[in-house]
Design a protein around this nucleic acid. Structure first.
Lengths: 150, 150
DNA sequence: TATTGTTATACTCTATAACTATA
DNA sequence: TATAGTTATAGAGTATAACAATA
């Protein structure tokens, strides 16, 4: 009769599981930090790209953020509806709509940046500055490796 | 006239954003590693707790995994439907249903453990063993701090 | 043929609120 | 009253597949 007992196994010893739990914490913190009616994490990420690279188009934004073109539509709709960016036609290629931040969009983004920075500090306050840099570097390393494969 | 230009800002410099991207990568990898019809990450986590602590009840599992009691019901339904665990009445408190893994459940869990281990190795293959341990420790530190607050 | 933006649709995971049966 | 389990519902966030307009 086979022994029906598992090897000692701990969920907490999996990087992936800890990643999930910390991601959930960070997500929740982000919402709280930006407040009711503040930018959501997705909207913030899209707006940040548009502010940094005005006249970028949706396909490129989607590729940069690792999401699908189809998923980006609702986000851009929302940001445009709030008056934070505009879709402007591009002479020379009538398929493309360039994304341009409005002055309000830039202002909201800059204000949100401060809140996000504060949020990051608080969420990872238990880590020293060095540890925070290490964490960032390790995560970035995994990302870079993987995104290179695609 | 105010200068409508953002301060140089990089999404990639945020721990939270990198966390999100790596979480997405890990999630995808997990699915691929466990294959069609294999355990999902949630089911795996619940089954692991039930295998390690037989006769645990749902409320405790939910607390341990950081999800709501209500959210756990569907997961337990699924695992029970697959014959991987059973709800058994607890003498002395008729509100409670203890969760007991079946022999099949234990077998599937042990088989899945091997696949999960392989998945972790591959997903974080770009990091040295030391770096993997560091990453795990840093994530765990953030978790512990936060879960203590609740 | 390939690409941009779009719509429709579905799936995963989580949350809130209210219920029931117990305690 | 408080707790365990449950149901119903909604909300993020993602994906796939197909389409129209354009290249």
């Amino acid at each position: 009769m086979a022994k029906q007992k598992s090897e000692g196994f701990e969920l907490d010893s999996l990087i992936g599981y800890n990643l999930k739990r910390v991601y959930m914490i960070a997500q929740l913190d982000f919402r709280e930090a930006l407040g009711e009616g503040g930018l959501g994490a997705r909207d913030f990420s899209v707006l940040s790209v548009v502010v940094e690279k005005p006249n970028i188009n949706q396909s490129v934004v989607a590729r940069m953020l690792g999401i699908k073109r189809s998923g980006l539509v609702a986000i851009v709709d929302q940001l445009a509806g709030q008056g934070f960016l505009e879709r402007v036609p591009v002479p020379g290629d009538r398929r493309v709509q360039a994304l341009k931040p409005t002055p309000e969009g830039i202002a909201v983004f800059n204000k949100s940046c401060a809140a996000v920075k504060k949020h990051e500090e608080e969420t990872f306050a238990v880590l020293t500055e060095d540890d925070q840099e290490t964490l960032l570097a390790l995560l970035a390393k995994v990302r870079v490796q993987r995104e290179k494969e695609i």
